[in-house]
Each structure stands twice: as C-alpha cells, then as structure tokens.
Design a binder for these strands. Sequence first.
DNA 1: ACTATCCCCTGACGGC
DNA 2: TGCCGTCAGGGGATAG
Length: 248
Amino acid sequence: VLLTPEKPFRRILTGAIIREIRRKGKFILFDLTSGDTLTVHLRMTGQFLLSDPGRPIDKHTHVVFDLGPGERQLRYRDVRKFGRLGIQSREGDATGSLEGLAPDPFELDAEGFYRRLRQKNRALKPLLLDQRVVSGLGNIYVDESLHRAGLHPLTPAGALDREQARYLWRLIRAVLRQAIRAKGTTVSDYRGPEGIVGGFQRFLRVYDCTGDPCRVCRTPIEKTRVGGRGTHLCPVCQKREKPRTIRP
DNA sequence: ACTATCCCCTGACGGC
DNA sequence: TGCCGTCAGGGGATAG
C-alpha cells in the first residue's frame, strides 16, 4: 500500500495488509493487520477505481494505492474534493474518527429506530439525514423511502406512532437493500470500482423525477426545498397532515 | 435544541 | 462563444 497524502498515512499504509473491508453508514473501513483502520467517506464525488498501473493518472485522482505485484492499483478520484480519508490508529487515534456516528439501518432494529425519533419535534427528513440519529441515509434514499412510506418530509418525527415508525423503517431497509443489490445509484458521478454505473436509478420514483407522473396516483412529482436540500415528493401521496400507514 | 446560511470545490447547464 | 447565475448523492462551522 502506498502514496500521496501525509506522514501518518504513508507510515501506516506503507507495507500494510488489508485484513477486512467493512462499511458503517456512509463510511468504508479498511481494517489493517496492524490494528489500524483506514476510514473513507466519498462525500459527493469520491470514487475508488481499480486501474492498471500503466494507465495515466487523471487530474482528479488524488491518492493511488499499490496493492502489490501483479495487482491493479486502487485509485481515489474526487472531482470536488469533498471526500475524506482518515486513519483510526490503534493507540492515539487520529483523523479518522467515527465518533458520534449513529448505527446504520442494518445495525438497528425497528424498535431502536422508533426510540430515536420518539418525542422529537424535528421534521422527518432532516432527522433521517442526521448521521448522529441514523447513519447511511443520504438525500436520494430519504426521498425515496418517504415516498414509499407515504410520508411528507416535514412530518414531525414525533408524530409517528410505533407502527408508522416500523413501517417507515421497513421501507428504508428495503430501499437500501435494493440499492445495494443494484450496486448504487448513478445520477451523474457515481461509479463502482470497475468504473461501471449503478443500477438503482432505474427504480427511483421521486428523486430526479420532477414533473414525471407519480407511479401511484399520476400526479406530477414536485421538487421543493427542505432543510436546505432539494426534496422530491408526490403532493398527493405524501400529505403534510396526519400520516397514515398503508399495509403493503 | 434546532434552523438557516455559508462554505469547501468543480463541472454542467440555462439564459442572455 | 462567452459570461453569469444556479445547482449538485455531504457535512462542518457559525450565527440567530
């Protein structure tokens, strides 16, 4: 392992062996045999790409990992440079801290989710995007989950009863599972490590569907702004009023 | 405790 | 063609 960044990076990564690659929320975690962990967040435009070592390094590639003789290189590319690479070191810890990060939808059960939004006055969408409440959900998957659950993004989180919270949780997990199975959502930049686009954009029902007819009621999908984020919804299926649970 | 706003950075797109 | 404003899968800092 090798390359560009700072001293602790080179020191810890040079010659390191990756024991396991994990995910927590939006973080990719490379556990090394040394006990240290490389933590990565791709943010908006970060990409890991496997590349033949001979290929020229394009101008947006910032880190190159040599994986060993005869292996392709793992290259970190990031047009907007919002992504972060850090090291969680065994002793002192350092740049790669995941402190405060909530469990993700595969680490938390429906009851735990309900407890986290119970008696909260915050609107549902900003709450779901808050990585200290639940991790792993971004703008696309929140919009998609809320539409499938028939919930308006501004619904006060505390207004959901236990059954409604469980229902939303089930749909959140279903959306994420399907998106993972489809290998991600490519609206524009996302690429998998082999450079290929994801497949979940084919299943989007509101995100990036402004003006298209809602698949449930044919009402045109609207785009608004909630908590400073672009927000897509069906004005008929997702009423601001009292939420209701629809059994599938 | 929570909201809104700006900022980080680059590229794409629309209007003039 | 060029210039300007706006917007983008995220999230941290700061002011109110």
